[in-house]
């Protein structure tokens, strides 16, 4: 498996371009801004500052972070394979003993690192800000191997891992799209199209399905979607990510909802999203004449 060589080359390339540093700077600024807003907004509303919590902050960051991660993934990844095919560097790459699978896997890994470094860096800055501002984590503990350990590092690490997984979903999606064509403009258009559907229009899909299932009439209580419609809503990666993040950050008892609406199942949905688009892209790329 030579995909690590491809990933390493790709990452060095990004490190030499400004994209990695620009993204890192942007994401750090973004988390600082969010942290600031998080501390300021409740005061404006007259709420008690003592209700602030680090986990609340992470939840506050999660939703806008999806916007940042998804758009950054498109910018970083749309050229990943289409660009190599278009310019001819793909010939140089495949002259060496790499299978097309190695190329695709290496691209996903390399570009994912380009995205994950800023995200992890930004979330670390948020952690520092949490301590500096004295927001503090909740005092809960977890029993691990007989020791009572504070729960928050686990939750924090879980949130970072979940965000990294979400980044991987979009990297896989956009690299997969990039593998289906040798035209970077077509790759950009397809990736943006997917983004519009999954990020902007997806909310309308379950509502539309309910509308149809209800005999082309809206049900009386739109807020309470039936379980199956809630599941359709969860199929959007960012909804799944937010849902899993909420499950992780809030200690809600979830036994009442079916398994497919629980937080852990949202992680399964994200895992499927990692595999499927990349596989489709690979099959197209494998069959293509360069």
């Amino acid at each position: 498996m030579s995909f690590t060589a491809v990933a390493r080359k790709d990452f060095s390339d990004a490190r030499r371009s400004r994209s990695l540093w620009v993204l890192s700077g942007l994401f750090v600024l973004f988390t600082l801004l969010m942290t600031y807003l998080y501390t300021v907004v409740p005061e404006l509303e007259g709420a008690d500052a003592a209700e602030l919590s680090a986990l609340g902050l992470l939840g506050f960051i999660a939703a806008p972070a999806t916007l940042f991660v998804t758009l950054a993934a498109i910018v970083v990844c749309y050229k990943a394979i289409a660009g190599e095919s278009e310019s001819g560097s793909g010939k140089l790459l495949l002259s060496l003993p790499h299978s097309r699978f190695d190329v695709l896997a290496g691209k996903v890994l390399g570009r994912w690192l380009v995205l994950v470094v800023p995200v992890v860096g930004g979330l670390l800055v948020a952690l520092v800000a949490v301590f500096t501002l004295g927001i503090g984590f909740p005092a809960g503990t977890l029993e691990i191997a007989g020791f009572d350990l504070p729960a928050w590092p686990v939750v924090y690490a879980g949130f970072v891992a979940l965000t990294a997984l979400f980044a991987l979903v979009y990297v896989s999606l956009v690299v997969g799209v990039s593998a289906t064509t040798a035209s970077t403009s077509k790759a950009a258009a397809l990736a943006l199209g997917a983004w519009v559907v999954l990020e902007l229009l997806w909310d309308a899909v379950p509502v539309g399905l309910v509308f149809v299932a209800n005999g082309f009439a809206l049900p009386a209580n739109l807020a309470a979607l039936p379980n199956w419609a809630a599941f359709v809503s969860l199929l959007s990666p960012s909804v799944a990510y937010s849902h899993a993040a909420t499950g992780l950050l809030t200690d809600s008892a979830t036994s009442a909802v079916p398994f497919y609406l629980q937080g852990w199942f949202a992680v399964v949905i994200l895992a499927v999203w990692v595999v499927v688009p990349a596989t489709v892209g690979y099959l197209r790329y494998r069959a293509a004449d360069l």
């Binding site: 080359k9 390339d13 010939k91």
Partner: peptide, 15 residues
Amino acid sequence: LPDGYHVYDRLTGRQ
């Protein structure tokens, strides 16, 4: 040595 290839402009020769 392929035809119509393109190199990675930002990487060095050694890389």
